[in-house]
Design a protein around this nucleic acid. Structure first.
Lengths: 156, 156
DNA sequence: CTAAGCCTTCGAGCGCGCTCGAAGGCAAGA
DNA sequence: TCTTGCCTTCGAGCGCGCTCGAAGGCTTAG
């Protein structure tokens, strides 16, 4: 099951993202073991498919310094398990509204090694704040939208 | 759910009383019932201030056919209570991720009169789905982000 | 041997939603 | 009267995140 499919499944468990099955699915998504370490590297089309992006976008991310996949004998990109895990992470962070700029900064720290985990954590905490704020905005807009719907439903 | 309920919801989000949420609070409080119908029209700067947009943006919205404020003796835009209510609505819908395109379509229907309320309602229902979906995405990303934070916190 | 279909690089273009600057009009205070 | 400051229109520019097309190379099927 591809990441995209997993996300689809999660989103369609509409009732509760906090429910047990959703959490289990999420762990599957987050857990490294979902992508086997010893799997053979795959081509760009397959990788793109797996994470729900296009080959164009994957090349773009690489050009932006977010990934550095290996190459096969023909010079084609070869995405390893680690590369795929990073792509999954990038896709999820983009989806949550994290700007490319921040992602570049974060990946830069990752490539500098363990000494930067503190700073990385800080970035993720900022990111959490961004998401929470956005959720609050959306709940407000949702209330307004439901008000409109109800208004059209009967009594103006 | 009118102003009262929105306020209640705001209170439940009361954790952060930062500037950003002040804007959200303003938007909520400016629900239709809080703008008095007989208030004198106001200038573009004041209107922009009131709804948390810039005069540039207000002119842009007008150029896009979303508003049609009156003019004073000097040819300056004069936003009436009705104009302001519409601006508040537009701002809230934009904030919730409704595309300009949809908003143009919706306002077009509004200007066609009462015969279009059914179609308008349908648009708002689509919009509700968009928001709900986005909230679900964000909750998912939030869980992933918190997982990262926890991981850096100590036990990998 | 050829053609299909994937891959490569590079640079340009696009859709969105603003955002800004230029050039000038009008109003009110020192 | 002059200056300050907000207003007008118009069109261009920008930041983001892709998205696409051109021109060509490798590989496999027929």
């Amino acid at each position: 099951m591809s990441t995209e499919a997993l996300i689809e499944q999660l989103l369609s468990d509409a009732a509760d993202v906090s429910g047990d099955s959703a959490v289990a699915t999420l762990h599957a998504l987050l857990d490294d073991s979902t992508i086997e370490d010893d799997a053979a590297p795959i081509g760009i089309a397959e990788a793109a498919d797996l994470v729900g992006l296009t080959p164009h976008t994957l090349r773009y991310y690489e050009q932006q310094g977010l990934t550095r996949p290996g190459r096969d004998a023909s010079g084609y990109r070869a995405y390893s398990a680690a590369d795929l895990r990073r792509l999954v992470f990038l896709a999820r962070m983009r989806l949550s509204g994290m700007p490319m700029r921040e992602l570049r900064r974060y990946i830069g720290l990752v490539e500098q090694g363990d000494a930067t985990t503190g700073e990385r954590r800080a970035i993720m905490i900022e990111q959490r704040e961004r998401i929470r704020r956005r959720v609050r905005e959306l709940n407000l807009a949702l209330a307004a939208t439901e008000y409109k719907i109800r208004t059209y439903g009967g009594h103006p």
